[in-house]
Design a protein around this nucleic acid. Structure first.
Ligand SMILES: [Zn+2]
Ligand SMILES: [Zn+2]
Ligand SMILES: [Zn+2]
Ligand SMILES: [Zn+2]
Lengths: 158, 158
DNA sequence: GATCGTATGATATAACATATCAACCCCATC
DNA sequence: GATGGGGTTGATATGTTATATCATACGATC
């Protein structure tokens, strides 16, 4: 769950560890990680890229876990509200959280070539958003920090 | 065009100055600021909030400048590509640029109560996005920095 | 066993965005 | 002044993302 960058890694452990963490956290907080919710988390964890709600819905549909948009959106709302997944605004899509352990101010790096998305840990208080907001007297409730570009693997090719 | 924050100001000059700048810049760069494009810019300048493409389209339709989605999207593409407007990813909506003069790395402060959106100037090189990207060897082509929350006027009320 | 809260099922629709092809206009070139 | 290319517009259709609404199921609580 700490896959920091665009590097190769044992991906099976990503899924297993992600689900295990979620199960534990839900138990601690009395959250219901129902079948559909857990399955959506697994689907998101299965790839290091953002997936659209309808792409997720196709999986659910194929597995008999639901066939209509609200099924996917409800699961995604649960996952994002509770920090198990994030919405990537730039893509109108979703990705599993890769820093489940600590509260965070994520920065997402989105490769336009290979579509991989990496969640990096940022220091909220040091960012430009926070600085600007403080100066304006603005109370930040949610900050979106997303960069689109080329990952180390794709940059040379392009 | 330097309305920095959520403060009161002479709004007519916002529109006039914004259009004037755009006209001049287009002349300098040989860009065609056609009727529809200029009108969309004026519509965006008319309010300090983000407007959806279909909301803009309604205006155009009422004025006989077009009635189908591509009309609005084409004008918006021209305006955003040339820096006269910005897309707010968080809202799937658009806003006129308020720093036409200088190249910039804008931060948007979005008030969820009054819907006002302020474009603030940030220092790209100092932000957390840039720091994180550098560490990961990621080449940033576009950075999205948007904060949602409460503006100084709305924060006390809430 | 009635009530309540949470989760699902099901249907419809809203909201946002793009693909495609034809027509047109301006202007430069032949 | 005809030809052709580039950019713009018109028109139609479609694709994609997201939510509203009402009904049903089910375990927990009283
Ligand atoms: Zn996260
Ligand atoms: Zn890549
Ligand atoms: Zn701007
Ligand atoms: Zn406000």
């Amino acid at each position: 769950m700490t896959s920091q960058a665009f590097e190769a890694h044992d991906h099976r452990s990503c899924i297993a560890a992600g689900v295990a963490s979620a199960v534990q956290i839900c138990a601690e907080r009395n959250l219901q990680l129902t079948a559909a919710r857990q399955r959506v988390l697994e689907i998101l964890l299965s790839e290091h890229r953002a997936m659209g709600a309808y792409e997720i819905l196709e999986h659910l549909r194929a597995e008999g876990l639901g066939s209509q948009p609200p099924v996917a959106y409800r699961a995604l709302e649960f996952l994002t509200k509770n920090g198990f997944a994030h919405r990537i605004e730039r893509l109108n899509a979703f990705i599993a959280c890769s820093h489940l352990d600590n509260a965070h101010a994520p920065v997402f790096l989105i490769c336009r070539a290979c579509e991989r998305v990496v969640e990096a840990e940022a220091n909220a208080a040091q960012g430009e958003i926070d600085r600007v907001a403080r100066r304006a007297g603005f109370v930040v409730e949610r900050a979106v920090r997303e960069a689109e570009g080329l990952c180390p693997a794709c940059a040379p090719t392009a």
